[in-house]
Amino acid sequence: MSGDPWIWIGAVLTLMIFSFLYKDNPFYKFGEHLFVGVANGYYIVYYWHNALKPNLFEPLSAGQFLYVVPLLLGLLYFTRFIPRISWLVRIPIGFTIGWGAGLSIPAYFQADVLRQLEGTVVTPATFSNTLHGIYAVIILIGVACTLIYFYFSREHKGVLGSASKLGIMFIMIGFGASFGYTVMARVSLLIGRIQFLLGPWLGLID
């Protein structure tokens, strides 16, 4: 058994969370509330050291007074607590939302539209390896049929109906695969925790 107090803390907290498998109990609630508190404390420190200090206070103390602008914009968030001028909170929100929306249009177009279409298009070069060529054709059919399934401007009848039915089959295979993959990721986390309890804590395995 480990003599390291940190290992003991980790093991006891792990068991506290696992106790929820029996039923909701005070040990689980303690672990859950501690997690929320510590995670918030973690992000306070993280944002101080990685956001506010290098991007606001250091430039300001170096005489870059342009950074007064984000300081003032940031302070406007707190006008939310003063009913008479609470509408001013919309200014930093509008600034951030406008920035995000503007940035996302070309970013989505480049990464999620052009790149994905580029990967889907079948050219004669795709058939340099026959098997890969066949797979590429299956992917092309799958992408087209999936998109047709989500096309609601026309009734799904005839060719559109058949393509839509094929699309839902691809979607179901995709959902099943994603589900299986997610379960396996969670199972690997579970194995990790069990390994921690049996290894570093109890010393039963190497």
């Binding site: 929306a101 999620d112 994905q116 797979y135 992917i139 799958g142 992408v143 399934y149 979607i171 695969a177």
Partner: peptide, 24 residues
Amino acid sequence: MTVPNMASQRGILLGVAFGSIATA
């Protein structure tokens, strides 16, 4: 994972991208 799943995920991703661009 790499063929039928990729095809459906790509279709969904394209739909999400168009939706996000329209919303933006």
